[in-house]
């Protein structure tokens, strides 16, 4: 993947870019994005992929003027505009899925294909989502991964969870990223999306990891029933980080939109 910076009203936005084919915009989750993301690599074999970093993530600086859901939604469209794209395939994972769904609901005539990968944005009282903000690093893998042990290794790049270097990097990155994410996810990751999903006109595929313990798979049908004609794909042996655990299967589900 290549990397470039585009200017937007609120902040300069760092953006990963690669592959060729139809334009696809990928919005990352609250945990962020790396250059060697396996899903981006898969998608780049079929699409021209653009993956912008939300302010506070990667090299994109935090942005105090993005405060609420509407700010995030319009910023998403500002980035699409800055990338000079028309009607890209819009893909989002977790928090990115929430933003993508909001973008598609806010401008239903500007997006005709939408992929939501275990998106945030709904709240079911009987299935509360864990408080991801208070979880300590060593507690996260069991919520995020089908295989927590393998997941922990992915999170730390092999370092021990008590390693001071890991903790220092993690805490600073976490404060920047989750500080920003908290504006739309804290303390309950719901900002009224349920009232707006009906507006989406895009052909939509919803992808869920069958062992997602962060946003449980029961949220899949909730999204599906609120978006006309949406297709739901459940992937076994994958948790909330289905994008790392089963990237090929996720890419395949997204490719069905093309």
């Amino acid at each position: 993947m290549q990397s470039k910076t585009v200017e937007t009203r609120h902040a300069p936005v760092r953006c990963l870019e690669g592959g060729s084919g139809e334009a696809l915009v990928y919005l990352h989750g609250a945990g962020g994005l790396t250059e060697n993301d396996p899903l981006l690599a898969q998608l780049a074999t079929k699409f021209h992929v653009h993956a912008p970093f939300l302010p506070g993530y990667g090299e994109t600086a935090e942005c105090a003027t993005l405060r609420d859901m509407l700010d995030f939604t319009l910023h998403g469209w500002d980035v699409v505009e800055a990338l000079n794209l028309k009607n890209p395939i819009l893909v989002g994972h977790s928090m990115g899925g929430m933003i993508a769904a909001e973008m598609a609901a806010a401008a239903p005539n500007d997006v005709s294909r939408l992929a939501l990968i275990c998106p945030a944005g709904l709240w079911l009282d009987d299935h509360p989502i864990p408080d991801m903000f208070s979880l300590l690093p060593y507690e996260l893998p069991k919520y995020l991964f089908h295989d927590p042990e393998a997941g922990a290794k992915l999170m730390t790049s092999g370092l021990d969870m008590s390693d001071p270097k890991f903790l220092q990097d993690y805490l600073i990155r976490n404060a920047r990223q989750m500080g920003m994410a908290g504006k739309i996810l804290f303390p309950v990751p719901e900002r009224g999306l349920a009232e707006r999903l009906y507006r989406i006109k895009a052909r939509t595929v919803i992808v869920w990891g069958q062992s997602d313990r962060m946003i449980p798979p029961v949220y899949g049908p909730a999204f599906q029933s609120a978006i006309a004609g949406a297709k739901l794909v459940t992937i076994p042996e994958a948790g909330h980080m289905v994008i790392l655990e089963q990237p090929a299967k996720v890419a395949q589900a997204i490719a069905s939109l093309a």
Partner: peptide, 19 residues
């Protein structure tokens, strides 16, 4: 909570409680 303190304050803080 992430975002409550500034990055500078976190850099100066102790870490062991998060292990």
């Amino acid at each position: 909570a992430p975002g409550y303190r500034t990055i500078k304050t976190i850099q100066a803080g102790a870490l062991s409680q998060y292990a």
